[in-house]
Nucleic acid binder design. Structure first.
Lengths: 231, 231
DNA sequence: CGAAATTTGTTCGTATGTATA
DNA sequence: TTATACATACGAACAAATTTC
């Protein structure tokens, strides 16, 4: 059983060998016919590739290949450093999902909006030398940004907002802890479940004001990344 | 449409208000009946909560509530905040060992002294509400401080140095990672071995200079302490 | 211990909604 | 506007893991 995992593996090989970033997969319906399974099963397989950041779904358009093939990961144990001051403005991240979600109590409270009101949610994956290093959920308060944010694909979110919307963000506070990865973390970060992750929660305000307009939660592999703060 | 999002929101509220970590949701079949939808739809809703780390699926068993709801009244001891900017000058730490040791390569390099030359080492334990929260190893470059440091017992090491020796220290850099505790960590911090620790390595200079005269390495329980940085 | 019941996991089929070209 | 493609939802069946008896 678990046909979708076989298909996911096969699809991933196909993508890495014969597709480039920007290409689109064949339609789900075609793939379903090709693999002789229900379209649900193909979707479930593609879900896996979306999770790992290889594919991005685009309703009405298709499933796009996000990252380059042949990005071979380094041997484990390699060591990187990171600069906390650049969290949220990291240049090497790519979007793996986006949409509007209802604000939960915490988010609504921070943003000063009604509970259940809609906010923008982006999930980005950051890779270092082809290795997934951290997955970051961004929440944006201002729905007016959505038409623009819809087209953000790779690079720095903060730079993108500054560029396209003239919105300048400043970090207000950062909260940090460590924990063992959940299943989703393991999948997204290709983790074994034995190494802990670091969790950063940061709030960002519009520069010069106290209005929190972005909240992000980052899950970072602790074996690949060492955080550096220069005072 | 998007019934599953409504259900996800409702479930999240229920969980945050009436469930604790370790509790199990009602079976998906019951929830499907309750919300009068197909079980698929309930599953899709629960997927959202799994995604955010609130719920963990356990095949054959049920869907378990994972994390303590953050807007829940905390029972004492569950959660603390800490301020990184005060690391190394924390008032609640006590010395558990002290002495002169030979500098290893790393320490010698940082201090700019000969390999194997003697440096001061202090090990302090920091407790929060009587619970060991972190163990810190301090290395001091200047042996002239030893006669004075010998008498340091509790409180802030930095304040002590300022008081007794008129030495003003300023943090230069902090490096941070997370790891699983070693045996010694488990013993000193009364840890089970299943929760990760955060490791801070900080260098301190004499204020106004670039001379690194203190290096400290702090091992901190990640389940008791959340680090807060205000920018 | 083993069988039955319970609960989540996967797959099929079908239908309809929504976004994009 | 129409066609295409992804998104959501319903119903049914069986598989796999766990608990209960």
């Amino acid at each position: 059983m678990r046909v979708y995992l076989d298909i996911a593996r096969h699809l991933e090989q196909e993508v890495r060998h014969y597709f480039q970033a920007g290409d689109y997969l064949p339609p789900e319906s075609k793939l379903a016919k090709k693999y002789d399974v229900n379209r649900h099963t193909v979707r479930r397989a593609i879900d896996e590739l979306v999770f790992t950041g290889l594919i991005e779904r685009q309703q009405g358009r298709g499933n796009m290949v996000v990252s380059q093939p042949y990005d071979y990961p380094l041997h484990a144990g390699a060591h990187f450093t990171d600069n906390l001051m650049e969290q949220g403005s990291l240049p090497t991240s790519q979007v793996i999902s986006r949409g509007l979600v209802a604000a939960n109590e915490k988010i609504a409270g921070m943003f000063g909006v009604e509970l259940e009101s809609q906010v923008i949610k982006l999930r980005t994956l950051r890779k270092i030398n082809g290795m997934p290093a951290s997955v970051i959920d961004h929440y944006l308060a201002d729905l007016h940004w959505w038409p623009v944010v819809k087209h953000f694909e790779v690079g720095s979110l903060h730079a993108f907002l500054k560029d396209k919307l003239d919105v300048h963000l400043t970090r207000k506070s950062t909260r940090l802890r460590a924990m063992m990865p959940k299943k989703t973390d393991c999948r997204l970060l290709q983790l074994s479940g034995k190494t802990p992750i670091m969790v950063f929660k940061t709030t960002n305000v519009i520069t010069g004001t106290d209005r929190i307009v972005e909240f992000s939660s980052s899950h970072t592999r602790s074996d690949l990344v060492e955080i550096v703060l220069e005072h």
